[in-house]
């Protein structure tokens, strides 16, 4: 698991007012979310559909990405965490509260942004969000004030008195985020928050999520099937596939250096590899212009420099090869071997 310091509110991050002090609202030791052999089977023909299969995971505060293909069980997982859905077996707790028995108390302190369109077209953003704030238990005046605040934070200030029916997809997504934030939750559950957004809308939404997690001091669990998004905003990744946990680890361990250098030359990759092997390094040719060199220390860099200089090769770049989050799924599916690219 991640060190607890990450994802915390940082002093001096926020521009304004007395609330600029960092908010340490969760303790490091208590996991934000903990599940134990969590299983959910939807009834149906042939034994039904197994959405979650004995999922055991602990998630600590920060910005956590829950990644998996469509149908991996992400939405089911969120709905169980909210106490909206009862697990078939196993148990789950959020903020140290049991999801099956204390759902109402969990929902009071958790904000949920659903994946699909859930907005009534005839209400204005202000009316809807203020009403939902009251549904979360906020008094009327506080609900109104926080609604204005939160709508401004998500970038909907001018339009907030217009009916939602006339909003663009991007604006709707912002309303959905605003209603999840309006009661100042301790944990935000976001289900595919960039669904249907264009590239710039996507950037803005991801930035918003990033800042929610860092500046607001709110823990965030982002569900997505888009690995690129998870890589951009999260500092911890939980990957699930077929309702089972693939891996839960800090993002850095997914994308860190692999201990391999990629050396790209204009031509003569075979000669370069041969020279490096002769010098006692592990080097393999990867395509006509690339050589992969295993590095443990600084020595290969000198050897590469000398070899290219001696042979007069045009060195294009030397780059540390990195893991990518995709590798996780590729490794897992090697057995199915669709394209034969074993990692």
């Amino acid at each position: 698991m991640r060190p607890a310091e990450q994802g915390r509110a940082r002093p001096g991050d926020r521009a304004t007012g007395p609330a600029a002090a960092p908010r340490h609202r969760y303790t490091a030791r208590v996991p934000l979310i903990a599940t134990e052999s969590l299983t959910k089977r939807y009834p149906g023909p042939a034994g039904g559909v197994l959405a979650l299969d004995a999922l055991t995971v602990e998630i600590e505060p920060g910005i956590v990405g829950l990644v998996g293909a469509n149908g991996a069980g992400k939405s089911t997982f969120l709905r169980i965490l909210l106490g909206l859905l009862a697990p078939t077996s196993g148990r789950a707790s959020v903020l140290d509260l049991d999801t099956t028995t204390q759902g109402s108390r969990i929902r009071e302190r958790v904000g949920y942004m659903p994946e699909h369109d859930v907005l009534p077209p005839d209400l204005t953003a202000t009316d809807l969000v203020a009403h939902l704030a009251e549904m979360s238990g906020l008094p009327r005046t506080a609900a109104r004030e926080r609604t204005a605040d939160v709508l401004r934070h998500v970038g909907l200030f001018e339009e907030r008195y217009r009916p939602i029916g006339g909003y663009s997809t991007g604006m709707r997504q912002r309303v959905k985020l605003a209603q999840a934030l309006v009661h100042d939750p301790r944990l935000l559950l976001l289900d595919e928050p960039t669904n249907g957004l264009d590239p710039s809308g996507r950037d803005e939404m991801l930035d918003l999520i990033r800042r929610t997690g860092t500046e607001f001091g709110i823990a965030v669990l982002v569900c997505s099937h888009l690995l690129g998004e998870i890589e951009r905003v999260c500092d911890h990744v939980v990957a699930i596939d077929g309702g089972r946990l693939l891996r839960s680890a800090p993002l850095a361990s997914f994308t860190g250096r692999t201990g391999t250098l990629i050396v790209e030359v204009d031509e003569g990759a075979d000669d370069l590899a041969a020279d490096l092997v002769a010098a006692g390094f592990q080097a393999t040719v990867d395509g006509p212009r690339r050589v992969l060199v295993v590095v443990q220390d600084e020595r290969p860099y000198d050897a590469i420099r000398d070899a290219t200089a001696t042979r007069g090769l045009a060195l294009i770049r030397i780059e540390a090869a990195r893991h990518r989050v995709e590798d996780l799924f590729r490794d897992d599916r090697d057995g199915e071997g669709a394209d034969g690219t074993a990692a």
Partner: peptide, 22 residues
């Protein structure tokens, strides 16, 4: 706030929470 997101700090809420009955 025109067209931009988060040019102002986020305020937490420490006021009363009246819960389910409210």
């Amino acid at each position: 706030a025109t067209g931009s997101i988060f040019d102002l700090g986020y305020q937490g809420y420490d006021g009363p929470r009246l819960g389910r009955r409210h």
